[in-house]
């Protein structure tokens, strides 16, 4: 249902959507019942000439029932929400399916940059491809990501993948996604990270295997790669990130 409003382009997007729908339906049901009841009671017991106000303590069993029965029902609904929520959390955040590819995602004020293996398929080698603001991935391929921050807390969010993960300076946070629909999707930062936070955007391009192979080949040629990266492979990885302190030495 949510897919009608926001494309679902990863294998776990529909799990998140079902969870949202479940929460929206159950919480929405109780919202309508509670508000309806409140307005009905306000109307029914409005001030009228000749009718005295009653003092109700709410201690009698037949009155307490109006609290306890909805209370038990709400708790039951909570359980109905929490059980699948734990399953979704476990399957997305706690379990990592075997990776076909790995990408490094680096947040900084105010840009996303990416590093992935070149045609040799091995990360942290000379043919690695480094890009800024644009991540190219292959459809129906399981990606593990290593998420880092160069400065402050950021959050790597791809709404169409239903993916959102905070990036913390000094830590490498792992996660995964498996894109299942070819297209170009937004990347956003969803953690306030400074004055340029609202401008910290990027794109994730999901390509067919053929298009992705062509992109890899083009971007790993020395002429193109030279515009993206330092010549030394020692610059990759967290230790090699060109922080401002390193650049200024």
């Amino acid at each position: 249902m949510l897919e009608r409003y926001l494309t679902a382009a990863s294998t776990y997007a529909h799990w998140i959507d079902y969870q949202f729908l479940l929460i929206a339906v159950l919480v929405g049901f109780w919202l309508i019942v509670a508000e309806g009841m409140m307005f009905w009671l306000i109307f029914k017991f409005r001030a009228r000439d000749g009718r005295a106000t009653q003092y109700i303590t709410g201690e009698e069993t037949h009155l307490k029932r109006w609290i306890t029965i909805p209370h038990i029902l709400v708790i039951l609904c909570d359980i109905v929400i929490i059980v699948p929520a734990i399953l979704v959390w476990y399957n997305i955040k706690q379990v990592m399916p075997p990776a076909d590819e790995t990408v490094r995602v680096i947040g900084q004020q105010w840009a996303w940059s990416f590093q992935q293996a070149g045609p040799d398929g091995v990360m942290d080698t000379a043919d690695d491809i480094r890009t800024v603001g644009e991540l190219h991935v292959k459809v129906n391929t399981t990606y593990h990501f290593e998420l880092m921050s160069r400065d402050v807390v950021h959050s790597f969010a791809v709404p169409s993948f239903r993916l959102k993960q905070d990036a913390l300076p000094g830590r490498t946070i792992s996660g995964w996604f498996r894109p299942n629909r070819v297209g170009s999707y937004d990347i956003q930062c969803t953690q306030m990270c400074g004055i340029g936070h609202g401008l910290m955007a990027g794109r994730i391009i999901v390509e067919t295997p053929q298009d992705h192979a062509a992109w890899l080949l083009h971007n790993s040629t020395p002429a193109v790669a030279g515009q993206q990266a330092l010549p030394s492979p020692s610059t990759v990885g967290m230790d090699g990130l060109a922080t401002m302190a390193e650049v200024r030495r």
Partner: peptide, 17 residues
Amino acid sequence: GMHFNDVEGMRMRPMVL
């Protein structure tokens, strides 16, 4: 401001955009 290691440049680019 589009090089992988241009930290300050990447910070500047969204501002001028």
